[in-house]
Amino acid sequence: METDTATIRVARYRPEKSEKPYFQEYKVPYRKDTVVLDALNQVKAEQDGTLAYRWSCRMGVCGSCGANVNGVPKLTCATFLHEFKGKSLTIEPLANFPVIKDLVVNIDDFMEKLLKVKPWIIRDKQSPPEEGEYKQSGKELDRYAQFSSCINCLLCYAACPIYGLNEDFLGPAATALAYRYIADSRDQGKKARFPIVHDLEGVWECTLIGECSVVCPKGVDPMLAIQKTKILGAMEAPKTMLSPETLKAILPRGGE
């Protein structure tokens, strides 16, 4: 395998050195199997230890190493340099997040949203483990399995213009995880999660741009989860509207 040299343009932001972000170019050797993360690691190890970015598993499952590569959110560990042969290659922090330093973004907002959707099994009654597992058929598993594959890499948030325009939008990954639990046959927390996903900043903000699903490296298809949540909500609406609680609230009270 032959070795080539590429020039990568990396967005830098070093708050202790300058208030303004800037770009820095590095020359890196690469082969057919070199990924963008390898290039960053080469820079860090051999050229410039000040470059800051996150990474760990380098096999596309820990979700740390997302960055905007030529404007498109990517896992740097799964993006090959040779795909950019003859083109310029610019690496920037994930869009739509505040930047702490260089390629490191602040993901507090997502962590709060994740907590908000109650991403755990909610049941009226927990049976003790001694009674054995909750049975689940292949079909029941299929209903949510794909949405449980979210690695929280947040490429979808970087790709979502709705989130870009409105920070309060619950967003793709958090909704996918909410739906993952709603659709799980073991869960009974639909009621608890509905007010959150159907909030003003919830699923109805989504206008089906679909870029979240295009950039998702794990085939989660958050857009699908959002639409499925919309459908569930719409089906539930007549029930909610005609529920005794709603009727009591809107009908004139007799005799009181």
Binding site: P15, N106, G164
Partner: peptide
Amino acid sequence: YPEIPRKNLGPGWWLANRHY
């Protein structure tokens, strides 16, 4: 030290990418 605040998208955001 300050972070670079989140940039809200401008009116021309939909020209940034073919899908948009």
